[in-house]
Amino acid sequence: MNTQRASEIAESPIMANVTLDGTPVYIQHVDEDTEMARVFPLDHPERELSVPVGELAEQPAEE
């Protein structure tokens, strides 16, 4: 995923289907200067992580 798209997702009120190594995550914040994202797994919100934006993947919406 690129930094611009990660920022759009983080700022959107609509939940996007984003994964980190196959685990669904929520993007809290994106630092565009360092290309790092602050995320947490949906099933473990207490486990915040800082990860490179390039490690995140947006999955197609389920219909």
Rank of each mutant, 00 (worst) to 15 (best):
G54D: 11
V25Y: 05
D21M: 06
Q28R: 07
V18M: 04
T34Q: 11
A57F: 03
L49E: 12
P45Q: 10
D33W: 05
V18L: 05
Q4T: 11
V53K: 01
Q28D: 08
R5Q: 11
Q59T: 14
P41I: 09
L42H: 05
H44Y: 04
M15P: 00
I14H: 12
S50M: 15
P45I: 10
A37Y: 00
P41G: 07
V30C: 04
D21I: 00
M36L: 15
S50E: 15
E58F: 03
P41N: 09
E46V: 07
Q28F: 01
D33N: 11
A10P: 06
E46M: 08
A16Y: 11
A37G: 07
V39Y: 01
R47L: 15
Y26V: 14
A10L: 09
H44F: 03
E32S: 12
T19W: 02
V51K: 00
I9P: 00
G54N: 10
V18W: 02
I9M: 09
M36K: 14
A16Q: 15
V25C: 08
E55R: 07
I27A: 03
T23P: 02
T34M: 12
V25H: 04
P24L: 14
L56R: 02
R38W: 12
T23M: 14
N2A: 05
E32I: 10
T23Q: 15
N17Y: 13
E62F: 13
N2I: 04
N2R: 05
P52E: 03
L49K: 10
G54L: 04
N17L: 13
T3E: 08
N17C: 11
D43I: 09
M1G: 08
N2Q: 07
A16K: 15
A16E: 14
L49G: 00
T19V: 15
E63L: 12
E32W: 03
V18E: 02
R5M: 02
A16G: 08
N17H: 15
D21H: 10
I14V: 14
S12K: 07
E55F: 03
A16M: 12
